[in-house]
Simulated scan of single mutants.
Amino acid sequence: MHTHTNPTAGAVRRPSGLSMFYILVFAWAWGVGLLFAVAAEPMVRIFGEVSLGNPLVFVTVWSPTILAFAVTAVHGGRAGLRDLMGRIFRWRFPLRWYLVATFGIAGVALGARFLQAFLLQTPPPPVWDVPRWPEFAVAGLAMLVLDPGPIGEDPGWRGFALPRMLDRFNPTLAALLLGVIWAVWHLPAFLFSGMPQSSLPLGWFCVSMVSVTVLMAWVTINARGAVIPAILMHWAFNRFSDLSQDGAMYAALAYAGAALAVILGTRGSLGYRRA
């Protein structure tokens, strides 16, 4: 399997700001959650109920990307911003990583759902309903824009944080730590009934998040540091996974198995080697 250097690595170490980024991104998201928890009436009156349609919540989901630009401007200046923008808009990388990021993760998710349907004798996902494919495609493309998660989060987590984690840790450890951080960042969403996470089993959700982070790191590294594959994988993860009470265990184990296969197949490097 091919290995790839960090495309921005060189003789000069990248200005970090990683600690500042993590402090600010948690302060923002958890601070908003705390305000809605302790001052629910005035917050709801001003902003509306907690949901992804709430403008404050929507912007909060975007906080990793917003803060990635802010911290980069402070610590990296113009050179840092060019690096970050290059990662976000880099699209020239092998086609297979587009396919892995979308069809690969969809295959893992749907495989878990078919196994669940077989074992529990429940209806399988309607992927063979060919007449509905245009409907599924339109809905899926719409959610790439309407769902704030992939575009709002991944330039921050994968474009800013991941390369800096790779400067400090071996690739597998960097991905696992980032996955834990990403999962913990979501915890306030479990407290509010209007958020998608409120009805999900927390433990299996965290296993899925950490495992998918390993897969996202793998495709990002092999796409020359590009963020687009991570955005597409996040989108596919949200669209095809069943993380409900019935399906969460199957999804989590499938993602964990895929992540373990990647770690073993790359001998822990995820395709990365230092320049």
Rank of each mutant, 00 (worst) to 15 (best):
V180W: 01
V138W: 11
P131L: 06
L166E: 03
P148F: 02
T122H: 06
P131G: 05
L162I: 03
R113T: 09
A189Q: 14
Q116E: 15
T172P: 12
L173Y: 11
R132N: 11
Q197T: 02
L119R: 14
G194M: 12
A161S: 09
A161F: 01
L110W: 01
H186E: 11
A183H: 07
P201W: 02
G156E: 11
M195R: 05
G179A: 02
G104I: 13
S193I: 08
P201Y: 02
L176M: 13
A117N: 05
L162G: 04
V145L: 13
P125D: 06
G194F: 01
V145H: 11
E153S: 06
W133H: 06
L176C: 01
G152E: 00
F136K: 07
V145M: 10
T172V: 04
L191I: 10
F118D: 15
A117F: 04
A106Q: 09
L141F: 14
F118G: 14
R168I: 01
W133L: 09
A101C: 08
P126F: 09
P125T: 11
L119D: 06
P196W: 02
L115Y: 10
D147F: 07
L176N: 06
M195W: 01
W157H: 00
G104Q: 02
P126D: 05
P188A: 05
G107T: 09
M165C: 13
A161Y: 03
Q121L: 15
H186Y: 03
R132M: 12
I181H: 04
W182Q: 08
P150N: 10
A161V: 06
F103I: 15
E153I: 01
M165H: 08
V130S: 00
A112K: 09
E153F: 04
L120F: 10
F160H: 02
M143N: 12
